[in-house]
């Protein structure tokens, strides 16, 4: 067979398969998703009573204050930025990322236990001292960063460790918080696959509903 015929066959089959796998298939799937599962297909966005979007149940948000259950440390601060100072363009596309620090990397230990430096720019606060100062017994999920930097969950132990601090800051009973944690825990699939995690955004929204910001 001549080379020209072989080439023409390659080009034509490339175009035909391209139309099939890159145009027909994805468009059919997008149409299906939008029609049958519109909530999931648009990012599982939840709204408040006023109908404004407050976040996605699948994506974590940064929480560091005493009044909220803190989320895991994040290398991208949960894809957030102040719109006035967003030079890196975080809000244009959204970002995700991870530390990619090897277990042997000294930078990992510096980040966890903090590092003092005469130059305040270079000093690192450290997640461990921060938690200890706040009276929270550190758990592994609260000191290690996640793979996506958007992890919506903390572990059950990590949530339980924060109960006393939040009860004190908000002046509510610790036992009320235990119930909230249970209600906002995403369990394993069939009780078997994956690990249970407390959805921090949902939990904190429930917390605000129980004890509104004055």
């Amino acid at each position: 067979m001549s080379f020209a015929r072989e080439a023409s066959r390659a080009v034509r089959s490339t175009l035909v398969l391209w139309v099939l796998t890159a145009i027909i298939y994805p468009l059919a799937m997008i149409a299906f998703g939008q029609l049958v599962f519109p909530f999931q297909a648009n990012g599982s966005i939840i709204q408040n009573a006023q109908g404004e979007a407050v976040g996605s149940i699948l994506i974590g948000q940064p929480f560091t204050s005493d009044r909220y259950f803190n989320s895991r440390p994040s290398t991208t601060n949960y894809s957030t930025a102040n719109p006035q100072e967003d030079e890196a363009g975080v809000l244009k596309t959204g970002v995700s990322g991870a530390s990619n620090l090897a277990p042997s990397n000294p930078a990992l230990l510096d980040r966890i236990q903090g590092k003092s430096d005469p130059d305040p720019e270079k000093a690192i606060e450290g997640d461990l001292p921060r938690l200890q100062q706040a009276g929270v017994k550190p758990t592994h999920d609260l000191i290690y960063t996640s793979g996506s930097s958007l992890d919506p969950h903390i572990s059950l132990a990590g949530a339980a460790a924060q109960i006393d601090r939040i009860a004190k800051a908000r002046g509510i009973q610790p036992n009320q918080l235990g119930g909230l944690i249970r209600q906002n825990t995403d369990g394993r699939f069939l009780g078997i696959f994956g690990e249970p995690g407390v959805n921090v955004l949902k939990l904190n929204l429930a917390l605000d509903a129980l004890n509104p910001v004055p």
């Binding site: 998703g33 407050v54 948000q61 719109p83």
Partner: peptide, 25 residues
């Protein structure tokens, strides 16, 4: 898992509304 051609959604974060989060479905 989202399935859309829409642009990223911007939401104010719960703890500090001056900071916005970009959610890209």
């Amino acid at each position: 898992v989202p399935e859309t051609l829409a642009d990223p959604v911007l939401v104010p974060t719960l703890e500090n509304p001056t900071v916005q989060q970009a959610i890209c479905p």
